[in-house]
């Protein structure tokens, strides 16, 4: 049983918001979508700050918005429980463990970087990072490339990135958004035309 079930939503304390998102930030690895189940457990199952039906909305909003997905989820939960102040507290709590751990790891790596063993370790890690990024791409492709047009857009974006690097990645992403808008519009017009004929 969630222990705070009868608690009115506006009585969530700022301290509790901070500690909850600090905990989520400290103990969830893999970022983004990998963090969402942890967030769901903390804010809905254990604390009922967000009703189960509303969770879908939280995750829909956080996936659509730019920026770190987990951070968006923290901001949104902070907002619906304690307004703008809650949003700031939740976001800061969520990011604080990252700051501490990244500083510690980067500093440690910088100290031992010239050691030949560490160098060899990083020669092994770099290909693993390439694989991690490629896997993230495949994973996302599996979820979002559901028809031929989406698949074509993806290949065109990849080709432009490789062969016309002067375009830059950001314009490709933005043009992708426009192409999606145009493509779907054409598709709908075709469907409409067919149903009228």
């Amino acid at each position: 049983m969630p222990k705070n079930k009868d608690k009115a939503v506006n009585t969530v304390s700022l301290l509790e918001l901070f500690t909850t998102f600090f905990k989520i930030g400290a103990f969830s690895f893999g970022g983004g979508y990998a963090m969402l189940p942890v967030i769901a457990r903390e804010i809905s199952e254990q604390r009922s700050w967000v009703k189960k039906e509303e969770l879908q909305d939280v995750f829909a909003i956080t996936g659509c918005l730019p920026g770190a997905i987990a951070l968006n989820a923290a901001a949104f939960t902070g907002y619906i429980t304690r307004g703008v102040g809650g949003m700031i507290i939740a976001v800061c709590g969520n990011l604080l463990p990252s700051v501490v751990v990244v500083i510690a790891l980067c500093t440690a790596v910088a100290l031992v970087r010239d050691n030949p063993v560490v160098e060899a370790a990083f020669l092994g890690i770099r290909p693993a990072v390439v694989a991690l990024i490629a896997y993230a791409a495949f994973n996302m492709a599996k979820g979002s490339l559901k028809d031929g047009f989406a698949f074509t857009l993806c290949l065109v974006a990849l080709a432009v990135a490789i062969f016309v690097p002067a375009v830059g990645v950001v314009p490709i992403v933005l043009l992708g958004g426009l192409a999606g808008l145009a493509g779907q519009k054409v598709k709908r017009m075709k469907l409409k035309g067919r149903s009228e004929a």
Binding site: A134, F138, M140, L145, F149, L153, L155, V173, G176
Partner: peptide, 9 residues
């Protein structure tokens, strides 16, 4: 969502 996997790859 269609172009982003291409960019990540």
């Amino acid at each position: 969502k269609s172009v982003i996997p291409g960019i990540i790859f």
